[in-house]
């Protein structure tokens, strides 16, 4: 499946992926409103780790055998067999955060329910990739299965 890959050697540490991730997962879909005026404030699904010299944007790997799906006690976390996308059903999630504890990549964020990357479901290219100013994020199918 297509996944988002981060190129550390090109990452600017500008963190615009976070800004645009919040925008894509907001009610208004407007970069200014989403990041300043909207309540509840949208949460970024991608996080840039590192400093100005070396940084990379980390988000969900959409594993082949996701530990978060196995650990989910309500069946809210599922992997879509067709697209491979691992996503949370917000209506089923009770916010127990077991998924957060088992995720080997630290890609789940706490909130009223578990918050994680859904590859901007339905979009041809996720918002983080589309808005990266230096093409440090690429959305591609490298073939290899992950875990």
């Amino acid at each position: 499946m297509k996944r988002v890959y981060a190129k550390e050697e090109l990452c600017l540490n500008c963190r615009l992926c976070e800004v645009y991730c919040k925008t894509a997962h907001s009610a208004s879909k407007d970069v200014l409103k989403a990041n300043k005026y909207e309540t509840p404030a949208p949460v970024s699904r991608v996080t840039v780790y590192g400093d100005k010299l070396r940084s990379a944007a980390v988000n969900c790997r959409h594993c082949e055998n996701p530990k978060c799906v196995q650990a989910c006690i309500t069946g809210a976390m599922t992997k879509d067999p067709a697209t491979g996308i691992v996503a949370v059903d917000e209506h089923k999630c009770i916010g127990c955060m077991t998924c957060l504890a088992v995720c080997p990549y630290g890609c789940i964020t706490t909130g009223r329910f578990a918050i994680k990357c859904d590859l901007c479901r339905g979009e041809t290219e996720p918002a983080c990739v589309k808005n990266c100013p230096n093409r440090a994020l690429v959305y591609t199918d490298l073939g290899g299965a992950q875990e």
Partner: peptide, 13 residues
């Protein structure tokens, strides 16, 4: 009114 304090400018300059 427009600054969202994302700090992009801080890290770029």
């Amino acid at each position: 009114e427009r600054c969202i304090e994302c700090g992009c400018c801080v890290r770029q300059c």
